[in-house]
């Protein structure tokens, strides 16, 4: 069920409002008027006007949970590819697995995958990561699914509803990186269902009633598994 009327597509430069106070994300203000900054869906309420992007590269913010791939090992840390125009750097001090007796490449080597958090971004967009958080770890098993970073909020769902759905109905472990990479671990067939659901969410992110449809889809597939 689509309600494009409630979320119309807007193009860069479209005038959204004449009151600068309602300007939300995805907009810019010039001469007291609010315009769309990029191609996206317009989310207009009485108090705020924002544009939800349909596409775009992942730009890191402090506090984001990301999944990265180690590209280089240096004496004082690891250079991590976080699927962004900007590389991340994980200092040795921020990796709890690192002990003074070990060498950096024994703890994390090239092409290793980690779940990390963005700790700091300096004005020149140098991104520093940390693994000192409950969610963070080196990923040694499971599956990584890559999607368009702009669709990640939809995969998480309102207040984490989508993730909760996967966890409770299918019993899988799942961590969604803000940079478009998602780690899923569990029974292989259940992980397959999660993967298919994620691709459906990615392609239908801008439609309504998605949570219900995915719930239906998961229920159906789970039933097929048990029915065999």
């Amino acid at each position: 069920m689509i309600d494009l009327a409630s979320r119309p597509i807007v193009l860069p430069g479209e005038l959204l409002a004449s009151n600068p106070k309602v300007a939300g994300s995805g907009t810019y203000i010039e001469n007291g008027r609010v315009y769309a900054k990029f191609l996206g869906l317009l989310d207009k309420t009485d108090t705020s006007v924002r544009v939800i992007p349909l596409k775009g590269r992942y730009i890191p913010s402090v506090g984001d949970v990301v999944i990265g791939v180690v590209r280089e090992v240096t004496g004082n840390g690891w250079v991590v590819d976080i699927n962004s125009p900007y590389q991340g750097f994980l200092p040795v001090t921020e990796n709890p697995e690192m002990k003074p007796s070990k060498k950096p490449n024994d703890v994390l080597d090239i092409d290793d995958i980690i779940i990390a958090k963005v700790m700091n971004i300096d004005p020149k967009m140098k991104v520093t990561l940390t693994m000192k958080d409950r969610m963070c770890r080196a990923v040694r098993f499971g599956r990584i699914i890559g999607i368009n970073p702009a669709r990640v909020p939809r995969v998480i769902g309102k207040k984490g509803s989508m993730i909760k759905l996967f966890k409770t109905k299918l019993g899988v472990q799942i961590v969604v990186g803000k940079n478009g990479l998602i780690w899923v671990s569990g029974d292989r067939r259940k992980v397959n269902i999660v993967e298919e659901s994620i691709y459906i969410i990615e392609s239908e992110a801008h439609t309504d009633g998605l949570t219900d449809r995915i719930t239906e889809f998961v229920k159906r597939r789970k039933g097929e598994l048990n029915g065999k």
Partner: peptide, 11 residues
């Protein structure tokens, strides 16, 4: 550029 989602003032 619009299709790529690049932020722009207009077209």
């Amino acid at each position: 550029l619009v299709d790529a989602g690049v932020p722009m003032k207009g077209m």
